[in-house]
């Protein structure tokens, strides 16, 4: 069994619980053991780098020190945490363990092969768009993603589990990120655009890999609907939840029950749940 260190970050212990649960669930089925970093602290995203550079490096750096002591590759599901940990790594120029964003980690060829071997329920007929957001691809010096204007790795991963990813032009447009609580008007404007484009592509759901993108896209659809008079009811599903569904994980329904826009309706209409 492969063992990696795991840095969940604050959101995954709260509002993004289903991302944490599905990351753990999928890893378990793939024979990957996740060892949570002992006494990890908040990476500081996004407020530390916005207000005090030294603090942002020190907060993220403490977690890197813990990970480096463990000596194992570090898996990070939250892309905001990933970005801050990579920034601290670049700033301190310390030789440490590889820091891997969960989407990149599960998109590695050997992992995709492992997933394909264990498929019990290919997601055929499920039309999706992959929404990467900002920090999964930018800045490319930190993420290492070459196709940062039109990334393909999530599309490839979703294709491997039988879903049908459609091309669209909003893969890497910003959702408003940490403005969610204080400038909700901006977040609604940006997510409204992303949701309308996905609706135009006639998909069943948007697939994401970031707790902030998920929250911003999922939680404001009711308000958008009442403010614009248009229909907004697109489920926003983590890629790990869909892998879990394709691998037949028994807790999938529990994960999906935590969403604001219900994903079960469309998945059962496609005969997948």
């Amino acid at each position: 069994m492969k063992e990696v260190s795991y840095y969940p970050g604050c959101s995954l212990h709260g509002t993004a619980r289903e991302y944490d649960e599905s990351c753990r669930g999928v890893s378990d089925l793939l024979g990957i053991k996740l060892s949570e970093l002992k006494d990890w602290n908040c990476c500081g995203a996004s407020s530390a780098h916005c207000t005090d550079k030294d603090l942002s490096i020190a907060l993220a750096g403490r977690n890197l020190d813990i990970a480096n002591k463990g000596g194992r590759e570090l898996l990070v599901p939250c892309v905001a945490c990933f970005s801050r940990l990579k920034a601290a790594e670049a700033e301190t120029e310390k030789e440490g363990v590889p820091i891997r964003y969960a989407l990149d980690f599960f998109s590695d060829e050997p992992v995709i092969e492992e997933i394909k071997k264990r498929l019990v329920r290919p997601l055929s007929g499920l039309k999706i768009v992959c929404y990467y957001g900002c920090l999964a691809v930018r800045p490319p010096q930190l993420t290492g993603v070459k196709e940062y204007e039109n990334p393909q790795h999530m599309d490839k991963l979703m294709g491997a589990i039988g879903a049908e990813p459609l091309p669209w032009s909003y893969k890497t447009d910003c959702c408003g990120s940490s403005l969610m609580l204080v400038r909700t008007d901006i977040v609604k404007k940006l997510t409204g655009r992303i949701l309308s484009m996905a609706r135009e592509a006639e998909v069943d759901c948007i697939v994401v890999g970031c707790p902030i993108c998920q929250a911003n896209l999922d939680t404001r659809q009711g308000e958008l609907a009442s403010e614009t008079g248009e229909t907004y009811d697109l489920p926003i599903i983590y890629f790990t939840e869909l892998i879990g569904l394709a691998l037949g994980h028994r807790d999938v329904k529990k994960w999906l029950s935590r969403h604001i826009v219900d994903p079960v309706k469309v998945l059962s209409a496609r005969g997948l749940i």
């Binding site: 604050c10 959101s11 212990h13 709260g14 509002t15 006494d39 990890w40 602290n41 908040c42 500081g44 407020s47 530390a48 916005c50 207000t51 005090d52 603090l55 907060l59 940490s178 403005l179 609580l181 204080v182 400038r183």
Partner: peptide
């Protein structure tokens, strides 16, 4: 007005608890 307030509340939360506890953060905000 409120964006810098958000950042300062967020950092206070880390300073006090090491991790961000969302409910506490929202109440402070």
């Amino acid at each position: 007005k409120n964006v810098p307030v958000f950042h300062s509340v967020f950092l206070d939360a880390i300073k006090k608890g090491g991790r961000v506890y969302e409910l506490g953060l929202i109440v402070q905000l």
